[in-house]
Write a protein that binds this DNA or RNA. Structure first.
Length: 372
DNA sequence: AAATCGGGGTG
DNA sequence: CACCCAGATTT
């Protein structure tokens, strides 16, 4: 259960000050207008933590079904700590940023070993857990433990940039410093969890990146950017990274009625997930030649009866990938891995059950469609 | 300070 | 297509 509020600093928000007026307006607005979201039905620190981990860089609507399934499968810290990694990754499959799932499990194991299975109840202690940064520590501390800890996420950065007319880039060190200072000033006082959620809710539903609905905003009277006439101009934007085009190959390598599945390294892209063997093509390399080369180099197999199945495209944040999919037969010889952690010869059904990324699922779906 | 890490919704 | 999302971690 949530602990009682700790002593709050000596200056409760006076409703006469701009800060006090804004926080009162935010709290009243939030209690009236907030969306009914699954994680708002509980103060259970474990559930709050899981929701915050899932919501990192991920939209609310995407998270909701994962949140229910994950908690159904791993209802508490002990269940998560005792689970198989593949089961945790399986529950995370399709959600992206898979290091979050591995860190959750590692953190759960640590909490069981060192804290009797109870999540730490301060931001500083939470911060020690793998995968818990300043934002997540503040969110769990304020929402689950009623502590006046600030949070700054993308929504809060936008709201505060506009409210205070901050023209610095929120990504810069100076911009971050200022945002956290403003968030801290605002969170001091009653109901820190609701205040923090009000800021995020406002950014998500009213103070949106484009076409903000300023007439509906509870703090419009104090908004510097609105007075300036162009709230949409804030926050100051940065530059975007360049997108690379990549061509890769992968194959269903068959032997004695089974296919070869390989596990990606724990760290890096799609870490710990299962995949079909293959790899990126070098510049101007022919896909057929690339398949032969990557299978030889990365799984140590010579293959025959190579049959192209087709290609699938997948867009990552800064990569556009075109994957050529093949079916082939492996000659005798031991698997020797390079760049993968482990392998299994599995049936089609077992292959479909292994945790994998969406690109691999697309490839499997294509092969399935082609076979029938 | 910049790169890396997924996937999906939106205008 | 560009942009962004209840960010964290590594370099």
């Amino acid at each position: 259960m949530a602990k009682a509020a700790q002593a709050t600093p000596a200056k409760p928000g006076r409703s006469g000050s701009p800060t006090g007026r804004a926080r009162g307006a935010l709290l009243r607005w939030y209690r009236r207008a907030r969306r009914d979201l699954p994680w708002r039905h509980t103060n259970d620190p474990y559930r709050v933590w899981i929701s915050e981990a899932m919501l990192q860089q991920t939209r609310v609507e995407t998270v909701i079904p994962y949140y229910h399934r994950f908690l159904d499968r791993f209802p508490d810290v002990a269940a998560l700590a005792g689970a198989e990694l593949d089961d945790v990754l399986g529950a995370w499959q399709g959600l992206g940023y898979y290091s979050r799932a591995r860190n959750l499990k590692r953190a759960a194991e640590h909490v069981v070993e060192c804290c009797g299975g109870e999540l730490p109840d301060t931001a500083d202690a939470l911060r020690e857990l793998p995968g818990v940064g300043r934002y997540t520590a503040g969110a769990v501390a304020s929402i689950a433990f009623d502590r006046p800890e600030p949070i700054v996420d993308g929504n809060v950065a936008r709201v505060l940039s506009r409210l205070h007319g901050l023209t610095e880039d929120p990504k810069s060190r100076a911009g971050q410093k200022r945002l956290w200072e403003e968030a801290e000033r605002l969170v001091r006082g009653r109901s820190p969890g609701d205040l923090n959620q009000a800021l995020m809710e406002l950014g998500a539903t009213v103070c949106t990146p484009r076409s903000p609905e300023c007439p509906r905003c509870p703090v419009r009277a104090d908004c510097v950017a609105l007075r300036g006439g162009d709230p949409e101009a804030l926050p100051a934007g940065g530059k975007r990274p360049k997108v690379r085009d990549i061509t890769a190959v992968a194959a269903l390598v068959e032997r004695r009625g089974r296919v070869l599945a390989v596990r990606r390294p724990e760290t890096g892209l799609l870490g710990g997930l299962w995949d079909l063997p293959g790899g990126d093509l070098t510049a101007s390399e022919d896909p057929d030649a690339g398949l032969e080369r990557t299978l030889r180099e990365r799984v140590g197999l010579e293959v025959g009866a190579v049959e192209p199945i087709g290609a699938v495209r997948h867009v990552f944040t800064h990569r556009r990938l075109s994957l050529h999919v093949y079916r082939c037969r492996a000659d005798a010889g031991r698997v020797r891995l390079d760049g993968f952690d482990s392998h299994r010869w599995v049936t089609d059904k077992a292959l479909a059950a292994l945790p994998a990324g969406n690109l691999t699922r697309k490839a499997l779906a294509l092969a399935e469609a082609k076979a029938s």
